[in-house]
Computed example of a mutant assay.
Amino acid sequence: MTVLLVVLGAAVGAPLRYLVDRLVQARHDSVFPWGTMTVNVIGSAVLGFLAAAAVSGPVMTLLGTGFCGALTTYSTFGYETVRLARTGATTYALLNALGSVAAGLGAAWCGMAVALALTP
């Protein structure tokens, strides 16, 4: 049952990642990976919310592991950062690395803050 929940969450998260990434990136005429940063920040906020809301068991498996795991992408973040550095866009590479980590942590904190504010 656990594997099925992960698969179901990922079945929604992965296509959503692709669609959001393409939608965001199409709106920016830049080599900076805005789409990847966007999905990673959204996923961090959602996971922060779920963690602070003390969601556990099957719901956390479905949404935290499956959905957020497929929505976010550390491998693409790493690849795009290295690609930027190798093609001479060193400033963009540094901004991507530092900005993504800072934005992800900030989003997780915000998600947690929202969940705690909604908890009686």
Rank of each mutant, 00 (worst) to 15 (best):
V59I: 13
P15L: 01
T76E: 04
A89K: 05
F67P: 10
L16I: 05
A52M: 11
Q25F: 08
A97Q: 01
A14I: 01
A26T: 05
G106V: 03
F49K: 11
A45P: 10
N40F: 01
D21N: 15
Q25A: 12
A53I: 00
Y18S: 03
A93S: 07
A113W: 11
T61M: 14
T91N: 09
A108K: 03
F77A: 02
S44T: 06
T73L: 10
Q25G: 03
L95R: 13
M112L: 02
L63N: 04
W109K: 05
V6G: 02
A102T: 12
L16P: 06
L23G: 05
P58N: 13
G48K: 09
A70W: 04
L19Y: 11
A10T: 00
V39A: 10
T76A: 10
L63F: 12
L23E: 13
A113D: 04
L94F: 10
A115M: 01
V82T: 09
Y92F: 13
G57I: 00
A115D: 01
T76I: 01
L116R: 15
V39H: 06
V12I: 14
L62E: 03
V12M: 11
V39M: 05
C110I: 15
T65Y: 08
L63R: 02
T90R: 15
M37P: 01
V59Y: 11
M37W: 10
S44N: 12
V39G: 05
Y74D: 00
L47H: 03
A54E: 15
T38A: 14
I42T: 11
D21Q: 12
L116M: 12
A11N: 00
Y18L: 13
F49A: 10
G99Q: 02
A10F: 02
V101E: 08
R22D: 15
W109N: 00
V24N: 08
A89D: 12
G9W: 00
A85F: 13
T65S: 06
A54F: 06
G99F: 01
S100N: 14
G78C: 09
V59D: 14
V114I: 15
A70Q: 02
F49Y: 15
T76G: 06
L98Y: 02
V59C: 06
G9T: 05
